[in-house]
């Protein structure tokens, strides 16, 4: 989505996001809060036995109406919040990240009583920040989620991979390296899924950011299959592999003759994603634009 120059939107800083999450944590109702409507109904029924006359006859019905009304209100509220979060996620899916960020930011305080929706909203905001290049702020969100989620679950592993990739984006190389090493085992059961593909892309990004281009080339066998679950986003991986070949050729002294593999990988990358999109996320791909 091209940025609108008139849009006053400023993504939150990591500190702002951290404070926001601290002010609006997931806050599910306690067991007593859940029981309160039933206790009120019980009190009304007991009162109906204690009192006499018409009040006594009316109170049980009041209790029943109260319970039905309360349950109905709660379920309507729940559905309304679910629809709100789903719409926000759809906006993010349509790559309108700024708009999705705004909606998510407004939704978060409302969904604090429902931990599932709260987690989904934080994940969506973090993903938007990540995609907008606000890696440090995204890491705040990912860390918050990782502290809440049970280890080993697919969503936990996926967020762990996203966090490692964001750390690479933020040039926190040793932090990213720790994350990638730690995730090697947990990622294994998710072969041929977007999780393993995102992990492979993170590894390739690490090789590029640490200038291990030859290592990247050596490990390129099967890369297309490994990246495939990412869909068109596999284009980022193809572009990074083209860069690995490009620098390997330069290091080998073939300054004037860029090898066919570099051109092939770049052609594949631009077949999946436009060069502008590739450059926006990985500015180091700039020299490859001459290969087009």
């Amino acid at each position: 989505m091209p940025a609108d120059p008139t849009d006053p939107f400023q993504p939150p800083t990591p500190e702002q996001f951290e404070t926001f999450l601290r002010d609006h944590p997931a806050n599910p109702p306690t067991a007593w809060q859940m029981r309160t409507p039933w206790l009120i109904a019980l009190v009304l029924i007991v009162l109906s036995f204690v009192t006499g006359g018409p009040v006594s006859a009316v109170l049980p019905w009041v209790a029943l109406i109260w319970l039905i009304g309360h349950t109905s209100f709660r379920s309507r509220r729940m559905v309304s919040l679910q629809v709100g979060v789903r719409r926000t996620q759809e906006t993010a899916m349509l790559r309108r990240y700024t708009q999705a960020m705004r909606q998510g930011w407004r939704m978060l305080p409302q969904v604090t009583p429902i931990p599932m929706l709260h987690g989904q909203t934080v994940a969506m905001i973090s993903h938007c920040l990540d995609t907008l290049g606000e890696y440090e702020a995204a890491i705040v969100g990912y860390d918050y989620l990782l502290a809440q989620l049970p280890p080993g679950q697919p969503i936990t592993v996926h967020i762990g991979v996203s966090r490692a990739a964001a750390a690479l984006g933020a040039e926190r190389l040793s932090d990213a390296d720790d994350g990638i090493r730690r995730l090697r085992g947990p990622v294994e059961p998710f072969t041929n899924t977007p999780i393993s593909a995102a992990y492979r892309l993170a590894m390739l990004t690490q090789q590029v950011r640490t200038h291990h281009f030859e290592e990247g080339v050596q490990e390129s066998e099967g890369l297309i299959d490994e990246l495939r679950p990412l869909g068109v986003d596999a284009g980022y991986g193809h572009a990074l592999m083209a860069l690995c070949h490009f620098h390997t050729d330069l290091n080998a002294g073939d300054r004037d003759d860029v090898s066919n593999p570099a051109k092939t990988w770049w052609r594949q990358a631009t077949l999946l994603l436009p060069p502008d999109t590739l450059l926006k996320r990985f500015p180091e791909l700039q020299p490859l634009t001459e290969l087009s």
Binding site: R228, Q268, L272
Partner: peptide, 12 residues
């Protein structure tokens, strides 16, 4: 041709 080349990248 263009669609087919993309198909071959997107599908195994």
């Amino acid at each position: 041709d263009w669609l087919w080349r993309r198909t071959c990248l997107l599908c195994s």
